[in-house]
Amino acid sequence: MASDEVADDEKRVISEDANAGLATPIMDLTAAVIVAVIAILVAAESLHLPVPGGVVFTAPGLLPFLTAASLVVMAVLLGVSAITRRRAMPRALDRFEIPADAMRSLSLGGIVVLFVLALQVVPFETSFNVGPLHFYIGTFEPVSIVFLTGLLRMYWRAPLWACLTVTVAWIAFLSIVFRILFQTPLP
């Protein structure tokens, strides 16, 4: 109910990103603290950067420091705004609003991390000729086929043979387009 009414109010403002706007106070407060910590660390590091020739106006850390310092001010403003809202609203409404599919998103993210890790650590290299054409296969092709087939099985839910066929065709297409047509190296 409350979120509906808040949403109605938010609809009055036209924005390029429909999702962006006020989160619950506790979430805004958390975000403000994280940003403030990052900004303070950057500001401190900027002050430690060397100043060639002793000219402050051309110091490499000048704009990073100004940016980080103003970011701290913005984080404080967001934090103060969150605390003000937190005081004015019932505690029961102030909670972390995590999307329903967050766990699924995180596990997908985990699989992508494993995918990239495999691309980095699995050594694979072979080449062969088909008539006048020379084909090179690196780590990208076998690793992508394994992970993509698994992901398709999870999210497309088609039979394994269908997932494998689609994956092999897609990876072969990408490999030919990039390695042969665009001469772009793949992982």
């Binding site: 109010d9 938010e10 403002v13 036209i14 924005s15 390029e16 990103d17 962006a20 706007g21 006020l22 940003v35 990052i38 940016t67 103003s70 970011l71 913005m74 984080a75 403003l77 967001l78 705004s81």
Partner: peptide, 16 residues
């Protein structure tokens, strides 16, 4: 422009 109800958040991501 991208953060209609809370422009502060838009500036923060721009600064980040």
């Amino acid at each position: 422009m991208t953060s209609g109800t809370m422009p502060l958040k838009g500036w923060m991501t721009g600064w980040l």
